[in-house]
Design a protein around this nucleic acid. Structure first.
Length: 422
RNA sequence: GCGAGCGUAGCCAAGUGGUUAAGGCAGUGGAUUGUGGUUCCACCAUUCGUGGGUUCGAGUCCCAUCGCUCGCCCCA
């Protein structure tokens, strides 16, 4: 084999791309209705942005980034997630000065150097939203509701919403100390990864799947017990609003997300049918990130969805059928070929999809191809049609065929006739 | 980064040391030079991911390397 796509990357071929287009169409519609506006930020940023934003101790920053130097020796990094870039743009362009709340969404490739697995790639795609400028629990409920709308519109059924509060910075540092104090005597019994994390990033130990660690963690102090009255109130408000919206959730006290910037609300949507890589959307509140990156103090919340995983679930299902006629132009002979090309162009200007057969092969072969590409109607121009400027309209489903003047096809009443059975 | 399994055509594959690498799908051409989804015929891998080694002989054994899959880790 010669050249191949780099490890962890892949081509999305036309047959799969239609599912991506479907997903994007649905998501766009829902986001638009909720008044979110699209933003695009660069695929690479200064390395520093991610180090500061995501946290140097996180796995993402410490071992999964695609970092390189450009020709002027600037350290750049392919973005491993979307939030840092959006926040940077928010600050850089003074979006806060537009007043009010900014509701933004983005869609694009992200890059993490990880071991590829099903539903997990080194170049993968995320759809995400960020709501900047509101500390109101209604913002938390809203972003969760929008995520759920998208997932449900895509037809996901076995969804579970996991909810937690990681408190504010003060709550967390107090809890962190309590957790370290509790775990230190057991250090030797923890799995190696967790021992490593004990001082670097102890909250993540709660997530460990190692059975012995789990047993120890089970008796550990709970983060929810360390929430300040304000944090607790916010969390209760969010829950109450979710109930108002009829959104079911499970409190998951060990849910600690892998990025340092989260505060208060943390959540994940999981789809049980995906097994291990079942998290299909994850997010939370990050009330200090804007300030930490040099902007004005701005509370914010957001989430991201892993699109490869959604596509995995979508591909089992049939897509809605094409609602526009697909016309296939079959010609034979020079005059007919010329007329076919012109008529095809005119029909495209009317809004139809028209494919012109360029093979010059026998009518039979061309009609066969029309059938194979799923055309609804075959337009046939041969020598005799070319002479009197007519065209044979052949419905592929029924096989019926009528002879009409070429220009007649441009009239509006043909629009529905193309789609009719005959 | 760790553990395990696997790479034969566009796809699914048989082959497990003996001369010319089954078969199916898809594709191309023809039967049928003015009409498709059926049928029939022909063509379609100088080579088994790549490189090296063992052997009289390697798709088959060994080593390396690249890639894929599953689990851990991590995350969306």
């Amino acid at each position: 084999m010669g050249l191949q796509a780099p490890r962890g990357t892949r081509d999305i071929l036309p047959a799969e791309r239609v599912y991506w287009q479907y997903l994007e169409t649905i998501a766009r519609q829902i986001l638009d209705r909720a008044a979110y506006r699209e933003i695009c930020t660069p695929i690479f940023e200064q390395t520093h942005l991610f180090e500061r934003g995501i946290g140097e101790a996180t796995d993402i920053v410490s071992k999964e980034m695609y970092t390189f130097s450009d020709r002027a020796q600037r350290s750049l990094t392919l973005r491993p997630e979307g939030t840092a870039g959006v926040v940077r743009a928010y600050i850089e362009h003074g979006l806060h000065s537009q007043g009010g709340v900014q509701r933004l969404w983005y869609l694009g490739p992200m890059f993490r150097y990880e071991r590829p697995q099903s539903g997990r790639y080194r170049q993968f795609h995320q759809l995400g939203v960020e709501v900047l400028g509101s500390a109101d629990p209604r913002a938390d409920a809203e972003v969760i509701a929008v995520a759920l709308d998208i997932l449900q519109a895509l037809g996901l059924k076995e969804l579970t919403l996991m909810l937690n509060s990681v408190g504010d910075r003060e709550d967390r540092s107090e809890y962190r100390q309590a957790l370290v104090d509790y775990l230190t005597p057991y250090k030797a019994d923890l799995d190696p990864d967790s021992q490593e994390r004990l001082h670097r990033n102890p909250l993540r130990i709660l997530d460990s799947k190692d059975p012995r660690t789990q047993a120890i963690v089970k008796e550990a102090p709970r983060l929810l017990d360390y929430l300040s009255p304000q944090s607790r109130h916010h969390f209760e408000q969010v829950q109450s609003l979710l109930q108002d919206l009829g959104i079911r959730y499970q409190i998951h006290p060990a849910l600690v997300r892998g990025l340092d910037y989260y505060t208060h609300t943390a959540f994940e949507f999981q789809d049980l049918s995906l097994g291990n890589e079942g998290t299909v959307c994850g997010g939370g509140r990050y009330d200090h990130l804007v300030e930490e990156l040099g902007g004005p103090a701005t509370p914010a919340i957001g989430w991201a969805m892993g699109l490869e995983r959604l596509i995995l679930l979508l591909r089992d299902r049939p897509l809605p059928p094409r609602d526009q006629p697909y016309l296939y132009m079959v010609t034979r002979g020079e005059a007919a070929e010329r007329q076919g090309l012109i008529l095809a162009q005119q029909l495209r200007h009317q809004g139809y999809t028209v494919e012109v057969d360029l093979s010059g092969s026998a009518f039979g072969k061309q009609v066969k191809r029309a059938d194979r590409v799923g055309a609804t109607v075959c337009l046939v121009i041969g020598e005799s049609e070319a002479t009197d400027r007519t065209v044979q309209v052949k419905w592929l489903a029924s096989g019926e065929q009528v002879l009409v003047p070429q220009q007649e096809l441009l009239s509006e009443n043909w629009r529905s006739r193309f789609l009719a059975a005959s």
